[in-house]
């Protein structure tokens, strides 16, 4: 198979995603499509760390929120254009990821998960308390990146971001980087013993993931035109990112898209019934997924196909096979 044929399906899919506003004119439907792509991008970003590298982060709201506040604060205090604010969001998120990685990657298993959760919570509380800078719980207005009535430019922007994020994982699956991350996920000690610099690759994965998350955070803030800590920095944001990727399929390229489609559409359908409790569906689907198909929708499909086809080395989901090295106390 030539490289071009290998790339044909992804390119066709990308073109189809970009063509949506030509067909969908209804503003409500377009907004739902924007939400699907916001969560696809976030799920894909989370997937790099949580899926491929197997580091279950529940603190990604930190990057999302930092992205949103970067745009909001630079516009509010310095009059920056939202585009410059967006660049700032990405620029700030990478060192933040390095700092968070330096702390949390020293923890293993459940302690890593709780550590990421704790750090993001601390950040939320600080933003909430630092009212002189952030206006705290009162929130802050955010300028639009595309002034005007049409939502189509927003759609094109987030579609490109989603394609970039999903494309990054597509490229990762075909690169040494992706194999290193998978090796770290499956057995970090063995990976290190054959010369994989686990600390560096995990940090690199987190920085890439954080950059996409912060970009989406800045976009989302501008799309919403208003943010406050509980919208962009709270635990449910982190949980939703993880759940999108997990239900679609951890460590699969298109898993986040499938997960985002399922979850966003389900919450829209049940919006009238559940109102503010729309995360009920996330909780229930997460439980069902873990109990009956821990690899997620695409992980399960891949698993079934692989049982039929001749075995071929794929960076895939081994989440159904249980015992990972998460023994008693693996700290430091």
């Amino acid at each position: 198979m030539t490289r071009w044929r290998e790339a044909a399906i992804p390119l066709a899919l990308a073109a189809a995603v970009l063509a949506v506003p030509l067909v969908v004119k209804n503003p409500y439907h377009l907004n739902v499509a924007i939400l699907v792509l916001v969560w696809t991008t976030l799920g894909a970003a989370w997937n790099i760390v949580g899926g491929y590298a197997g580091q279950l982060s529940l603190g990604h709201a930190a990057f999302f929120g930092i992205g949103a506040y970067s745009l909001a604060l630079t516009a509010h205090y310095w009059g920056w254009s939202p585009w410059a604010g967006m660049a700032m969001a990405v620029a700030v998120s990478v060192p933040l990821a390095a700092a968070i990685g330096a702390i949390t990657f020293r923890l293993r298993g459940p302690y890593f998960v709780l550590g990421t959760l704790a750090l993001a919570e601390v950040l939320r509380l600080v933003v909430l308390a630092w009212r002189d800078l952030t206006y705290g719980a009162a929130g802050i207005m955010v300028p639009e990146i595309f002034p005007g009535l049409s939502r189509a430019p927003y759609y094109y922007f987030i579609a490109l971001a989603a394609i970039a994020a999903v494309g990054t994982t597509w490229w990762m699956e075909r690169s040494g980087f992706g194999y290193y991350l998978t090796a770290i996920r499956e057995d970090q000690e063995t990976a290190e013993s054959i010369g994989v610099n686990a600390a560096w690759y995990k940090n690199l994965a987190l920085m890439i993931s954080a950059a996409f998350t912060a970009l989406t955070g800045a976009f989302y803030a501008s799309h919403l035109m208003f943010i406050e800590p509980d919208i962009v920095l709270s635990e449910p944001v982190s949980v939703q990112m993880a759940v999108v990727a997990i239900i679609g399929g951890r460590g699969t390229v298109l898993g986040p898209l499938v997960g985002a489609l399922l979850l966003v559409l389900a919450s829209e359908i049940f919006r009238a019934q559940f109102q503010q409790a729309h995360l009920l569906i996330y909780g229930l689907l997460l439980m069902l997924t873990i109990l009956f198909m821990p690899g997620g929708v695409l992980g399960e499909i891949q698993h079934r196909l692989r049982l039929r086809a001749a075995p071929r080395p794929v960076i895939g989901t081994t989440f159904s096979s249980s015992h990972e090295s998460s023994g008693q106390r693996e700290v430091g």
Binding site: G283, L286, I290
Partner: peptide, 19 residues
């Protein structure tokens, strides 16, 4: 199962109960 799946199952339970 792995700690990760325990975390995710009980996290799902928590989200479901809260909502």
């Amino acid at each position: 199962a792995s700690h990760m799946n325990q975390i995710l199952l009980t996290l799902g339970l928590s989200v479901a109960l809260v909502n």
